[in-house]
Each structure stands twice: as structure tokens, then as C-alpha cells.
């Protein structure tokens, strides 16, 4: 131990850095506690498909089955617009799930770790961060399904495919920002959690999961207003363009909007989380 000599001075317990610096300090903390973060991620990833015969295969099957349902639904309602339509839905589902799971998991990150929180202190921001990272890992595992599809459609492999993991990260990051704002509140009132489960379901239809960016542009004003406000448009569309193997045709504005949206959410989320987490855990 380094601080052995003269045994350190009296310091207030549980002193945390001021919440103004928290957007930066939270990242440093996650790095400092990387062993813990890694183990918590491992626990969540292992736990997700426990006691199931197909195991991790479910991370691929889940989006695949959902896409098949939407594919047929859409075919019945609107006729087949595009030979890639099934793939677009699949990518949309994967990216949207990455956002949705990351959001709900960060919101419940404090309340579901009640046992640990009540017995041991370490910076609590580790909980939302490890929840987000485990969802990113699971979403990246779902992305494996894209390779056989690329092969069957005879699409060439290109570096643009990297858009897909980037989109997974971006959507996960959008999720944690929102989630951290409400995680302390969810310790007091579980309603938050239920409300957000609903919001994630409803947001599915307001984001280009079943439809695409290009389809919305054809719809005129309504479509483009929706597109300019929804930060999830960028990651989903980016991933699709990556699959198609070309640089994204999204306007620079939407990319900048989405990135700054994610960063601002992270800043607000970190500040609120660090400010209220101490009081909120009393309710656990």
C-alpha cells in the first residue's frame, strides 16, 4: 500500500468530485475500475441467455425473427418496395434494440443492483456504464447475422461495413445519456421504468426501423420533420448505408445533430446522476 506511512489524514467519507466535472470524471472512473466493469459486463452477458438451449444464438434469432414478422406485415400492407427491405428492417431492429436495451438497462441499473449497493461502496456510475457496455456487446453479437446475408445477396465486403458497429456504439451511447437522467428517480418510483418500456416500444414506430430514411423523404414535410428531430435516424440509416457499401448520404447536419445530442445527453445525464444518486439509494 502506498499511503501506508503516517496513515493518511482524516478525509470526509464518500467525497465525490463536483458534478460539474462528472461527464469527464465518469469516464475516468470507468477506466480506473476497468476490472470491475469487465466482470460486471461478463456477468450480464452470461446471464442474459442462461438456462436456454440455444444460448447466445438467441442474440441473433431475436432480431431475425422480429424482422421476418415485420417483413411479412409490411409486404401485406404496402407491397414489396425494395429487394433489400428485409435487411433494412433487420438492421433497424438491431440498432433500435441496442438503443432501447441500453436505455432501459441504465434506468434500472441502480434499482436492480440493490444488494450490491447496500453493502459495498464504489462509484455507482459503474452500474450504468457496465449495463450499457454489456448491451453493446450483445448487439454486436447480433450483428454477426449480417455476414451470411451479405453472402446471399452477393454484396461485396467493404470498409463501410464498419458503420454498423459504429451505429451500435452511438445508439448505446444515446441510451445511457437518457437513462442516467432517470436512473436515480427509478430508485424512488418504479413507474419510470414502466413508462420508458412504453416509450421504447412507441419510439420504434417513430424511428426508421420499419421504414427507411429514403421512404420518409418521399413523404414530404411530415417525413422530414420527423427525421430532423429524431436522433436515432442517424445511427440506423448509417448502418444501412454501411451494408449497402457506400458512404452515407445523410446530410452533415443530421450527423452533427445526432452526435451533439448524444454528447449533451451524456453531460446532462452524468450531472444529474452524480448529483442525485446518493440521495436516491436511500430509497432502495
Amino acid at each position: 500500500m502506498e499511503d501506508d506511512a503516517s496513515v493518511s489524514e482524516l478525509m470526509p467519507v464518500g467525497q465525490r468530485s463536483s458534478s460539474i466535472y462528472s461527464p469527464v470524471s465518469n469516464i475516468l472512473i470507468a477506466w480506473k475500475y476497468k476490472f470491475l466493469t469487465k466482470n460486471l459486463v461478463g456477468r450480464t452477458v452470461r446471464g442474459r441467455y442462461r438456462n436456454s438451449m440455444l444460448g447466445y444464438l438467441w442474440s441473433v434469432l431475436e432480431p431475425l425473427l422480429l424482422s421476418i414478422v415485420y417483413y411479412f406485415l409490411f409486404n401485406m400492407l404496402a407491397g414489396n418496395p425494395d429487394r433489400f427491405y428485409g435487411v433494412w428492417v433487420l438492421i433497424g431492429v438491431i440498432i433500435w434494440t441496442s438503443f432501447g436495451k441500453s436505455l432501459t438497462a441504465t434506468i434500472t441499473s441502480l434499482s436492480s443492483n440493490k444488494g450490491v449497493i447496500n453493502l459495498i461502496y464504489f462509484p455507482r456510475v459503474i452500474f450504468p456504464i457496465s449495463q450499457m457496455l454489456s448491451n453493446i456487446v450483445l448487439s454486436l453479437m447480433s450483428c454477426i447475422v449480417i455476414f451470411p446475408i451479405l453472402y446471399s445477396y452477393n454484396v461485396e465486403l467493404s470498409l463501410y461495413l464498419l458503420y454498423i458497429p459504429m451505429a451500435v456504439f452511438l445508439s448505446g451511447f444515446l441510451g445511457i445519456g437518457f437513462g442516467m437522467i432517470f436512473a436515480p428517480l427509478n430508485c424512488i418510483q418504479k413507474d419510470v421504468e414502466h413508462l420508458f418500456r412504453f416509450i421504447v416500444r412507441a419510439g420504434f414506430f417513430f424511428s426508421p426501423v420499419m421504414w427507411t430514411y429514403e421512404m420518409a423523404l418521399e413523404r414530404g414535410t411530415f417525413g422530414s420533420t420527423l427525421l430532423s428531430l429524431n436522433p436515432m435516424v442517424t445511427p440506423i440509416t448509417m448502418a444501412r448505408h454501411g451494408f449497402a457499401g457506400h458512404s452515407t448520404t445523410l446530410p452533415t447536419f443530421s450527423i452533427v445533430y445526432c452526435l451533439s445530442f448524444a454528447v449533451i445527453m451524456w453531460i446532462i445525464g452524468s450531472m444529474i446522476f452524480n448529483r442525485y444518486e446518493r440521495q436516491a439509494v436511500k430509497y432502495l
Partner: peptide
Amino acid sequence: SGIIPPDRGECLVAGKISLLAG
């Protein structure tokens, strides 16, 4: 051990602290 912050007053500690519970 720093799990719950006190409402009033303060708690000062010198050195590495560990709570053994559960």
C-alpha cells in the same frame, strides 16, 4: 463506509476502509 451520505454532520476517516457484510 460511504454507502449512504449523512443528512447532517460529517464523517471523517483516515485510511483505506472496508465493510465486510453479507
